[in-house]
Design a binder for these strands. Structure first.
Lengths: 144, 144
DNA sequence: TCAAGTTTGATGCAGTTGCATGGATGCGGT
DNA sequence: ACCGCATCCATGCAACTGCATCAAACTTGA
C-alpha cells in the first residue's frame, strides 16, 4: 500500500511521459527540417559554450547531460568528426582530456538557437501563458 | 521574433525534458530491478488488456503508443517470442492482423503493476501533493 | 615508494531505433 | 473487371544505445 501514490500522481506521470515524448518529437522534427543535428548535440554545444574557455572534461559533460559514459565518448567522436568539437590533452590529468568547442561548433549553436527557440515557442509558449509556464517549471523542478 | 516564446516557456521546456529523462530512468530502473521488461512492454500490455477482446490491430497500437510502425512490428515480434502476445489473422482485412494478449501477457501486466505503481508513488507521488499533481497533469495536458 | 583500489575514457558486443523500401491486400473510379 | 493509388505490415540497413570490459593514470595508505 503506497499512500504516496494517489490517482493524481499516476495521471501526472502518464501525462509527463506522453507529453514529453510528443513534444520532443516535434521539436526534433523542426530542427531536422532545418538540416540540424539532434537536440543532444545542441545540449553539448550549449554546455561547452557556457563553460570556462569553451571546454569541459567528458566526465563533466556526462554529469551535466545525464548521459552514460560510453554514450558521451561516442557522441564526442561524432561531433569531432564533424569538426564541432576538438579533443585536447589534459595536462593536469593524464587520464583525462578536454572537449573544446571549435569555431564551427560555436557557429552551429548560434544558427540552431533561433530555430530551437521558435520550436519551443510554437510547442510550449503558444499553449501556456507566462504564469502557467512558470508554474509548470516550478512543479517539474520539485520532482528532482 | 516569436512573442509566444517567453523565458518561462523555455525553462518549462528544459525542465520537462530533463525531469522526464531522469524520472523515466528511475522508474525503468525499478522495473528492471524486479526483473521486468521495459515500460514500453507494459504500455502494450495495458492497451491490449483494455481493448475489446484483449486484442488490437498493429496500426491501432501505433496510434495509441505513438510508436513508428517498424518499431511496433519488431516490438510485437519480441513480445510474441516471449509468449506475451499472439498474432492472429484478421478475417476482415487480409493485409492486417490482430495482436492478442495471452494469459502470460495478462499475468505479467498484473505482476508489473504493483511495482510500477510504487515507482510512480516514490518518484512522483512522494514529491507532490494531490493538488500539485493535479495541476501538473492539467498543465501538461494543455501542451497537447 | 609501492601495492591496492579508484577514476577516466575507449571499445567489443548485442539489442534497439528510425528510415527507406517492398510485397500484399484493399479501395475507388471508370 | 480493371487500373491506379492508399494502407498494412515486414525487413534490410545504418546509426545509436547500454552494458561489460579494458588499459592507463591517479590516489591512498602504510
Amino acid at each position: 500500500m503506497t499512500e504516496s501514490c494517489h490517482e493524481a500522481a499516476v495521471s501526472a506521470w502518464v501525462q509527463l511521459v506522453r507529453v514529453e515524448q510528443a513534444l520532443l518529437a516535434r521539436v526534433e522534427g523542426d530542427l531536422k527540417a532545418h538540416g540540424f543535428p539532434p537536440l543532444t548535440w545542441y545540449d553539448v554545444l550549449l554546455e561547452l559554450s557556457r563553460a570556462e574557455e569553451g571546454r569541459l572534461r567528458p566526465v563533466e559533460l556526462e554529469r551535466r547531460l545525464l548521459l552514460p559514459q560510453s554514450n558521451t565518448s561516442r557522441l564526442v567522436d561524432r561531433m569531432e568528426r564533424d569538426g564541432l568539437v576538438r579533443r585536447e590533452a589534459c595536462p593536469s590529468d593524464g587520464r583525462g582530456q578536454w572537449v573544446a568547442l571549435t569555431q564551427d561548433g560555436r557557429a552551429l549553436r548560434e544558427r540552431m538557437w533561433p530555430v530551437y527557440r521558435d520550436a519551443i515557442g510554437a510547442h510550449v509558449g503558444a499553449k501556456l501563458d507566462k504564469a502557467e509556464a512558470a508554474t509548470l517549471a516550478r512543479l517539474l523542478a520539485k520532482l528532482l
